[in-house]
Amino acid sequence: MMKNLLLAGLMFFVLGVSTAPAKEALPVGDDPVVQARMMRLATVLRCLVCQNQTIADSHADLASDLRNQIVELIHQGKTDSEIMDYMTERYGDFVLYRPPMKASTLLLWFGPLLLVVIGGAALYRSAQDRQRNSADETELTLEQKRLADQFLNRKSSES
């Protein structure tokens, strides 16, 4: 009895699993190592349809096509840099989340640094100006000193 029940349970389990709706088809890559490598590459590639997402995050058709394409390239024995080249040959540097350093991207790479330098220089100059101005103003005349003393003394005697 127990045995039958167990068998029935097992049958149910097996059938249940086999008839469960298949997940998103992964045509060539269910190998976890390949999947992990594909995902690592996909997180540094921009999806061109929804431009602020990576190919790994995006649900766009093109992103899933490109993920499959990466898996296929991995199976063909391509190296990571060959796969990146494959993508930039087709979609340009724009697919790379980390743009290459070259003449046209110098401003992109060093623009922030340039802003920090300009801002720093401006800050330094204005600080200098302020120091110079305040240096002029701290000299009190004798009359001002006397008034200040008088005022302070009165304050302290009141309390």
């Binding site: 061109l48 349809v49 093109l62 096509d65 394409q69 087709r90």
Partner: peptide, 13 residues
């Protein structure tokens, strides 16, 4: 049909 040539041409829209 599978968009493979599209990928080669960098088609995204």
């Amino acid at each position: 049909s599978d968009g493979r040539v599209g990928i080669d041409y960098g088609v995204y829209g």
